[in-house]
Design a protein around this nucleic acid. Structure first.
Lengths: 134, 134
DNA sequence: ATATAGGTTGACGTATACGTTAGGCACGAC
DNA sequence: GTCGTGCCTAACGTATACGTCAACCTATAT
């Protein structure tokens, strides 16, 4: 009952990404699977790591940021620095999202105004052409 | 009292973009200033067009979409088709923004949960190291 | 004549996250 | 022995909106 092992494609399918993506992450230093000859072999740790990466992406972090975080994970046994760094990143991201939300709400308002104007203008044109058709 | 005319740099400064940007828009078919020899000359119409372009960008449309809209403006004297197209684009964009907002709120929730966890974990570590220091 | 300012056209660079060939090795099945 | 399958590397392609040279032209002021 040793750990399950995965090939690129298995791991990729498992987590719904492409093998290309997994190799790409390795190229960027986010993963470091073992090799058997030339072939990559992934353990459950690699799998957990990849899950973390995908979660980070989903939360809007860049691969570079995710890498920094993972590097800390490997380099900081106490996890103190890692936690602090994570906290900072997360708070920055929260601030940025709040900004985005403001902008989004404003944009929505403008768009709805434009929508109204367009609908009104169209309606006016309809009435005009209806009269002309009589 | 003829219309004011602008050079690229003047128009660009006027609307707080770079000359490069203005030329780029021309390259993409969004602007078509007159020329005096080789030099571009912009009228108030060009200026109005550029303002429209920038507004479109601010609202999150791509240059391609903006171009389609502007092309309709030139090709549709009744403005019927243009209004319909605009309306459709705007509504699509509104829908997309609403989607984005949902995702954003979810992401914010997750991030705040992570923030809490990290803070809690850090606090626990502080207590731990405090005890060890006694 | 020359310096200076401002205009012009390419064309490559930037950032992000992969997609997409292309070419090649290795291994079991038939 | 050769066919199909799966893994590998290398490297160019994609999308978006410009930034950044480089090299050159031109008008005006000195």
């Amino acid at each position: 009952m040793s750990d399950p092992l995965y090939t690129v494609t298995q791991l990729a399918n498992d987590l719904s990404v492409t093998a290309r993506t997994v190799r790409f992450y390795e190229d960027k230093g986010l993963l470091n699977p073992q090799r058997v000859g030339n072939t990559r072999v992934y353990t459950h740790r690699d799998r957990a790591r990849l899950i973390l990466i995908l979660r980070g992406k989903r939360l809007g972090f860049t691969l570079r940021e995710i890498k920094e975080y993972l590097d800390l994970y490997d380099a900081d046994p106490t996890r103190q620095e890692q936690l602090r760094a994570l906290l900072k990143r997360v708070q920055n991201r929260i601030d940025s999202l709040i900004e985005q939300e403001k902008a989004l709400v404003e944009t929505l308002g403008e768009l709805r105004a434009i929508e109204q104007q367009a609908q009104t203008a169209l309606a006016a044109q309809q009435r005009g052409s209806a009269r002309r058709a009589r």
